[in-house]
Amino acid sequence: MTGTTEGATAPDFTLSDQYGQDTTLSELRGRPVLLVFYPLAFSGVCSGELADLSARHTEFTGLGATVLAVSVDSVFALRTWSDRESFPFALLSDFWPHGAVADAYGVFDDRRGTARRGTFLIDARGRVRWTVATPVSEPRDTGEYLRGLRSLTENP
């Protein structure tokens, strides 16, 4: 994965969530953010990953983190998926300009037109403190996210 690296300032963005409300990354400063890019709503691996994030959401919020999940899906598709799955975190639409935020983070797949599986842990000052990329066919380990977040909150 090339693009945003550990220690760099996280590229700022404003994206609409599944309810059409704007979320601006820089407005979340003061607390850590777990930024999870995934290829597509309703797909098998993505559904499993986000279900795991949902099941462990209170662990993330208990450590003060905001969880944001980003794909190139439309707001309408994200709303339908979120309503079906009851996700407790924002699903952000990087629909237009298509994949621009994923591209800024170095996780846009030009060939497929989707985000790759890229995860970024951003500290309270807006710096990327940890990142991982996973092949599109493999689910990520949310336990790894929690370990990174605990390390961040213990060593700000």
Rank of each mutant, 00 (worst) to 15 (best):
111 R>L: 11
10 A>Y: 02
144 E>D: 12
137 S>E: 15
78 L>N: 13
123 D>G: 06
91 L>P: 01
154 E>P: 04
23 T>F: 08
59 E>P: 08
134 T>D: 03
3 G>R: 03
19 Y>F: 04
24 T>E: 07
143 G>A: 11
154 E>R: 15
1 M>Q: 07
135 P>R: 11
120 F>I: 00
30 G>L: 04
136 V>H: 04
12 D>N: 14
2 T>K: 15
114 T>A: 05
143 G>P: 00
60 F>D: 05
29 R>N: 12
53 L>F: 04
79 R>T: 01
47 S>C: 04
51 A>F: 12
67 V>Q: 06
156 P>N: 09
34 L>H: 08
85 E>F: 11
11 P>W: 06
19 Y>P: 00
78 L>A: 10
48 G>M: 07
46 C>N: 07
136 V>Y: 00
124 A>K: 14
123 D>K: 00
20 G>K: 08
34 L>M: 15
58 T>G: 08
76 F>H: 10
62 G>E: 10
6 E>P: 01
13 F>R: 06
110 D>S: 11
30 G>Q: 11
119 T>F: 01
83 D>T: 15
59 E>H: 00
76 F>D: 12
54 S>V: 01
57 H>N: 09
151 S>A: 15
41 A>P: 09
92 L>F: 05
50 L>Y: 10
94 D>V: 05
109 D>S: 08
10 A>G: 08
107 V>F: 03
101 V>P: 00
31 R>L: 06
94 D>Q: 05
138 E>V: 14
87 F>H: 11
41 A>N: 14
116 R>F: 12
81 W>K: 02
103 D>H: 13
96 W>I: 00
60 F>W: 09
48 G>P: 06
75 V>N: 03
133 A>M: 09
98 H>C: 06
141 D>Y: 04
147 R>D: 14
156 P>H: 11
17 D>Y: 09
26 S>Y: 13
9 T>A: 11
142 T>S: 15
114 T>I: 12
92 L>V: 08
46 C>M: 00
23 T>A: 05
6 E>Q: 15
118 G>C: 05
8 A>Y: 09
130 W>L: 07
86 S>D: 15
91 L>N: 09
137 S>P: 01
110 D>R: 07
68 L>C: 07
70 V>S: 02
92 L>W: 02
39 P>N: 11
7 G>L: 01
95 F>S: 09
61 T>P: 09
13 F>N: 03
53 L>R: 03
103 D>V: 00
154 E>S: 14
61 T>V: 15
155 N>P: 08
79 R>C: 00
132 V>S: 09
67 V>A: 06
12 D>A: 04
10 A>N: 02
58 T>S: 15
132 V>I: 10
117 R>W: 06
36 V>C: 01
92 L>T: 05
34 L>I: 14
54 S>P: 02
136 V>D: 05
126 G>K: 02
154 E>A: 15
21 Q>T: 14
34 L>E: 05
31 R>S: 15
24 T>R: 08
99 G>R: 03
73 D>F: 10
7 G>E: 00
26 S>Q: 13
72 V>H: 02
15 L>P: 05
110 D>I: 04
32 P>L: 11
45 V>T: 14
83 D>P: 08
